[in-house]
Computed example of a mutant assay.
Amino acid sequence: MIRVHMLQGIAEFLNGTRAEKDIELRIVVEDENDCAPVLTQTIGAVYEQSNPGMFVTTVVATDADQEGTLHTKIAYSIVKQHPEEMFYINPQTGGLYVMKNALDREKHDTYTLIVKGTDMNGAVDGKSGTGTVTISILDVNDNVPTLESAYYECRVEENVKNVEVVRIQVIDTDLNHTDNWLAVFTIVSGNEAGYFSISTDNKTNEGIVILSKVD
């Protein structure tokens, strides 16, 4: 939009001669607060168990009114959080931060926020726009693996080696198919002669016991 128009005025007598020097006319179009802020969709991520005050992401709003005026001075606020309130926003910068140390990915792995931007620095007569913020909760290794069963009984044929004896299922509620989830199995006792070996099935997180040698 052209905010300044430069015109030139000419004064002439009836015979066409100049009556005086040309006059420059400068017309400034004053801005009216007729544009609402526009908020882009924002995506952020933060680790579970993050401390209060941890930065997550920044919400950005644009306003087509004149820069450097209250018409484009935007104040941010959170309208709604789902599934629960876990974040707060800096009203001047749009920065989103963790509000309390209670983020648990195993409970909720995604949060959706509706954020509002209001021009006139948040005045009641300012124009507003809203946008959606999606925050992913990243996994940390905060869950202890447990065995599905405390006791296994199995049989194998004698004099046959390199056969699968049993699969031991481990339960870990950390994020599937990550290092936080994948178990490493060790035979602690009862295998002093080295008859058995154990490895992990990376797809199922099972321990595979193999009869690896015979007498």
Results as ranks from 00 to 15, higher is better:
202 N>A: 15
28 V>P: 03
142 D>R: 02
121 N>S: 04
72 T>Q: 00
16 G>Q: 07
196 F>H: 12
102 A>V: 07
21 K>R: 09
98 V>E: 08
7 L>E: 03
29 V>F: 05
62 T>I: 09
194 G>F: 03
201 D>P: 09
92 Q>N: 15
109 D>C: 00
57 T>W: 08
131 G>S: 00
73 K>M: 04
129 G>M: 01
212 S>W: 12
156 V>L: 15
110 T>K: 01
135 I>D: 00
153 E>P: 01
71 H>Q: 02
101 N>A: 05
20 E>A: 12
135 I>E: 03
119 D>I: 01
78 I>E: 00
22 D>S: 13
23 I>E: 11
41 Q>P: 04
9 G>H: 00
198 I>L: 11
172 D>E: 01
34 D>G: 00
92 Q>M: 12
179 D>R: 14
172 D>L: 07
105 R>E: 08
155 R>H: 10
184 V>P: 06
25 L>T: 04
65 D>L: 05
97 Y>C: 07
95 G>F: 00
166 V>C: 11
70 L>K: 05
210 I>H: 12
95 G>N: 14
163 V>N: 15
153 E>D: 09
181 W>E: 12
184 V>A: 15
47 Y>V: 08
101 N>W: 09
130 T>I: 04
51 N>P: 03
26 R>V: 08
16 G>K: 02
35 C>L: 06
118 T>V: 09
83 P>C: 01
110 T>N: 05
29 V>R: 05
99 M>P: 06
87 F>K: 11
25 L>V: 09
45 A>L: 08
82 H>R: 02
106 E>I: 00
108 H>T: 09
21 K>P: 13
97 Y>K: 01
174 D>R: 00
23 I>R: 10
181 W>H: 11
175 L>R: 13
211 L>I: 11
166 V>N: 09
117 G>K: 11
176 N>P: 07
78 I>L: 10
179 D>I: 11
209 V>E: 12
33 N>E: 01
197 S>F: 06
188 V>E: 02
195 Y>E: 14
9 G>D: 02
125 D>E: 14
136 S>M: 00
196 F>P: 07
3 R>C: 02
149 S>K: 14
131 G>F: 05
162 N>H: 14
146 T>D: 06
137 I>D: 07
54 M>V: 15
89 I>V: 09
67 E>K: 12
184 V>F: 13
168 I>H: 04
20 E>D: 12
71 H>L: 05
145 P>Q: 02
213 K>A: 12
212 S>T: 15
41 Q>E: 14
206 E>D: 06
24 E>R: 13
159 N>C: 13
210 I>D: 13
177 H>C: 04
60 V>A: 07
35 C>T: 01
137 I>M: 05
104 D>V: 11
5 H>Y: 02
55 F>A: 12
191 N>I: 03
29 V>K: 02
114 I>N: 09
68 G>T: 06
65 D>C: 01
163 V>K: 07
79 V>G: 03
3 R>D: 10
116 K>E: 04
74 I>Y: 06
48 E>Q: 05
171 I>K: 05
179 D>A: 15
200 T>S: 13
195 Y>K: 13
187 I>L: 14
141 N>I: 08
148 E>A: 04
203 K>L: 13
107 K>D: 08
93 T>C: 06
62 T>V: 09
164 E>V: 15
31 D>R: 03
201 D>N: 14
44 G>W: 04
59 V>D: 11
203 K>P: 03
122 G>H: 03
199 S>H: 15
203 K>Q: 06
82 H>S: 08
34 D>K: 11
194 G>E: 13
155 R>Q: 15
145 P>I: 05
